[in-house]
Design a protein around this nucleic acid. Structure first.
Lengths: 255, 255
DNA sequence: CGGCACGGCGTACGGCGTACGGCCGCGTTG
DNA sequence: CAACGCGGCCGTACGCCGTACGCCGTGCCG
């Protein structure tokens, strides 16, 4: 299957590229190809048409270059995606936010959501352990700053961040799926739901599954209106932050 | 996009198979192939070797049958995965749990985590909107029961469930990645972390990224010990439940 | 007993990632 | 200034994948 990360991706190779261990060569013909240009082209393709459309052939084509030329700068597709991810992290804002931890965490959540909205392919590409590129490290450092002065242990700080970012990613995935579905079927979520209503009524009867039937119908009716991925994101985010505040209050009380 | 779900997956076809719209034929030769046997074989392969190893050729091979014979019962790979997912949901327990909503939700979270542990391929396969198979519907109905009597609106009930299950999936994914990494590299997480220590110390210095450096080191040192995906799961779950309890208490107070 | 519906499958096509080996032009060296 | 060799570039080819298509043999129904 692959697609998101061949099992054989070599982290060391990705790291070498990410941290620019190689100096730019001036030898040879060189018609201006470079890791940066390749990554930029690849991101453009993935943004516009998704990870499936991102093939090495397409990348070469986009750069007016043979397929195999890409391999001069990038060891393989998996490593290319690694670099794409770190590059995307690099475009995130890292402003100094005024306000308490809750404001800061909420801001971080929204920034990450925006990132996933712009680069939907990241939702599928990150499957394996992230490669510790420079921008990911900077991002991690910045985001830890939001929870640094709350009296949490280092491990707890990491766990809080993991929790919030995990929620963002779940929500983003759900939202992305709705977009995909609308694009593929040509139907909005509400229309799709309505077209499946007869089918649902056949099997998902109030007799057999009372709760699922009622709630599903309610949720379905709201689709396109108030309910949807946005609601799930907002609701979940506030719940998560509420939950974190319990620990924070505890630590503040106990010193 | 594809890989876990070809963009061309046809939900209607999947649904037809899932709800057994076709009656079992008794015409023709028939050497005992069936949707069930195919699905079972496919799940065995995916469990043992991952989604990447699941190819139509492998499935046919495992059943002592030609590759294309599989297509007699299943329209394509995407639909096969759909059916695999619903089948996996079918093996989940749905006991009547005594205790309050928190006990019930916690139980649901752990059951789902166990499911993902047994079928790690599900973490990659569910990308798109789930197909509403019979077992998913039953699962949804069952799980809604855990939050049915808390005074929440229908939409809120759905959101609570989405939040909890999203956290489970995030955590399961993280845990699965650790397993994959250990399997691929032959190193435990702690060993891997240690082997990258020199590299990290070069770039992730206390000067440039003080917080990330300290927390990363702390988290890294704990790997293999107390910290890890299990901790992140437990910590996050309690935070999420704490957050939900705030809403529940609100509703209980306001009627 | 004839027909044919249907399960089973061999072949083939168009895609993918990428290994390999060669070409060619430039910067360096004697 | 000539020769060298290195490195950017890439054409070809291989082994995978999913699956369209058309052919067979079988056993039930009329």
């Amino acid at each position: 299957m692959a697609s998101e990360r061949k099992a054989t991706a070599d982290p060391a190779r990705s790291l070498a590229i990410l941290w620019r261990t190689r100096e730019p060569t001036s030898r040879g013909a060189g018609q201006g190809l470079s890791v940066d240009r390749i990554v930029r082209a690849a991101i453009d393709i993935a943004d516009a048409e998704g990870l499936d459309a991102l093939t090495m052939r397409r990348v070469g084509e986009a750069l007016g270059v043979g397929t195999m030329s890409v391999y001069t700068y990038v060891p393989g597709k998996a490593e290319l995606v690694d670099v794409m991810i770190d590059t995307a992290y690099g475009e995130m804002p890292r402003p100094a936010v005024e306000g308490d931890w809750r404001v800061r965490l909420e801001r971080i959540a929204r920034d990450n959501l925006a990132l996933y909205r712009r680069h939907r392919w990241m939702l599928r590409a990150e499957t394996t352990r992230p490669v510790l590129g420079p921008h990911l490290v900077a991002k991690y450092d910045y985001e830890l700053g939001a929870v640094a002065d709350l009296g949490l242990t280092d491990v707890e700080m990491d766990a809080v961040l993991t929790l919030v970012l995990g929620h963002v990613k779940s929500s983003a995935r759900a939202a992305s799926e709705v977009v995909d579905l609308e694009r593929e079927t040509g139907l909005t979520d509400g229309q799709w739901w309505q077209s499946h209503a007869p089918w649902l009524e056949t099997f998902l009867t109030a007799d057999s599954y009372p709760t699922a039937s009622r709630v599903g119908t309610a949720a379905g009716r709201q689709h396109g209106a108030a309910y949807g991925p946005e609601y799930a994101f907002e609701f979940g985010l506030q719940r998560v932050l509420d939950g974190i505040s319990v620990v924070v209050a505890e630590r503040a009380a106990n010193g």
